Simulated scan of single mutants.
Amino acid sequence: MAEVSDSFFGSEPVIVPTGGPLYLQLKRWIEGAITRGDIKPGDALPSERDLAMRVDVSRVTVRKAVQQLVKDGIVIQRHGSGTFVAPRTPRVEQSLSQLTSFTEDMARRGMSVRSQWLDRGVYVPSPEETIVLGLSSGDRVSRIARLRLTGETPLAIERATLSTAVLPDPSVITTSLYAHLEKSGNRPVRAIQRIRAANLDEAEAHLLAVPAGSAGLYIERISYLATGKVVEFTRSVYRGDAYDFVAELRIGDSSAQGSGQL
Score class of each variant (00 low, 15 high):
V4G: 09
V4S: 11
V4W: 04
P13L: 10
P13D: 15
P13N: 10
V16T: 14
P17M: 12
P17K: 10
G19I: 10
G20C: 07
P21Y: 12
Y23I: 00
L24A: 07
W29N: 05
I30V: 15
G37S: 07
D38M: 09
D43K: 13
P46Y: 10
D50E: 14
M53Y: 09
D56I: 01
V57L: 00
V57H: 04
I76R: 15
P87C: 03
E104Q: 14
R108N: 12
M111L: 15
R114K: 15
R114P: 02
R114V: 08
S115V: 06
W117A: 14
W117P: 14
L118A: 04
S126V: 04
P127S: 12
E128T: 14
V132K: 03
S136H: 12
G138Y: 03
D139R: 01
V141F: 01
A145G: 14
E152A: 11
A156W: 00
R159Y: 00
A160W: 02
T161P: 00
A165V: 02
P168T: 07
I173D: 05
Y178R: 07
K183R: 13
S184E: 09
P188V: 08
R190D: 01
A191M: 15
I195N: 09
A197H: 08
A198L: 05
A203M: 13
A212G: 06
R221V: 05
L225W: 02
T227N: 14
G228V: 11
V231H: 02
E232N: 13
F233H: 15
R235M: 01
Y238W: 13
G240A: 12
A247R: 15
L249R: 14
I251W: 08
D253L: 09
S254H: 06
S254I: 12
A256N: 08
Q257P: 01
G258F: 09
L262I: 14
